[in-house]
Design a protein around this nucleic acid. Sequence first.
DNA 1: GTCTATAGTCAGATAGAC
DNA 2: GTCTATCTGACTATAGAC
Lengths: 196, 196
Amino acid sequence: MARTQGSRAEITGPAVRDAARQLFARHGFAAVSMRQIAAEVGVQAGALYAYTPDKQALLYDLLRSHMEDLLAAWHDNPAAPALDRLDAFLRFHIQTSLERPEAVFLSYMELRNLTPENRRLIADLRRRYEDALEAILIAGQAQGSMSMPDTRLTTMALIAMLTGVASWYREGGRLDQDRVMAVYGDLVRGAVGACP
Amino acid sequence: MARTQGSRAEITGPAVRDAARQLFARHGFAAVSMRQIAAEVGVQAGALYAYTPDKQALLYDLLRSHMEDLLAAWHDNPAAPALDRLDAFLRFHIQTSLERPEAVFLSYMELRNLTPENRRLIADLRRRYEDALEAILIAGQAQGSMSMPDTRLTTMALIAMLTGVASWYREGGRLDQDRVMAVYGDLVRGAVGACP
DNA sequence: GTCTATAGTCAGATAGAC
DNA sequence: GTCTATCTGACTATAGAC
């Protein structure tokens, strides 16, 4: 990875974030040194500070941009039947979790390494995402197509269940992505009281 | 916490493990120094090495003993109806998760900081625990009281869902422990196709 | 924008006294 | 079993040359 001097900001900027995301997810924020990130990118450690004021800001930036990407990418259709919206949500969540497993992993593993202020900001974004799911459950109850004892608890339970996919799913394993989504669809519909 | 010289092995041994568990869970394995652990216990850093060969062994010991405690404490009753066994399992899992949130947190956050050999050993123990749940689901299908598309995926989904409780539950919050178990009971029975 | 060099701090682990 | 002292190495972040 060693290379000679030169200027290539458009390449290095994203490369720093990619390397940090991958290394933080693999070994944990505290276990990764700025030197490791620099080596992965192919620059010297000092050069990283042209892209981030410090290591903490690098982590915060990864979590914030991930959550904002999620919120921007999710398009609900409040006019559709709640069960269809729920199916769309679980497919969206599983797909993005499998597309960006490192970012998902970081987002719920490394909250504790943020400063309190940064942690609060990320928690707010996450809350908005949870609310998107809860809105569907509330609509489903109102329409009579779902029935559950507590929409907030169900929201937390479903998100934990869906996010867990990233921790065991392996490309080329026993089940492909579509099959996993179908199985989880059955589980989720059962949990929200939409029995077949 | 500072104290004078003296010998009190029966106290210090467990205290080292308690302090390590708490600090690792709060800040992450890599972020915690042996000096921090020693300060929490009230000894000097060098004294810790009378109880553990190194930092890695300390982590491994915490994870191994937690999983072995879980396996030893779970008593299934294969003769009972599968739905009753499922209810007992989810109550057991939620209760132990809430009794020992730090150990639960560590057990699925710090696997990556184990050596490959140690990681394999912990994964084997975890697998045995997952098998205990899957056996119930298989029995439920055979008895006709449950129906699901894939018992292995359902096992992983349910464990992720139940373990997630520890991440948001707060003593004295909106719901007490019994109420949480009841709500999750409904969700779980729905997911496994045991519709009311 | 990237380099080299370094300041200043802290880490894990060990040795030997008590 | 615990202490003090220390070795050796790594860390984040900065300064100044190119």
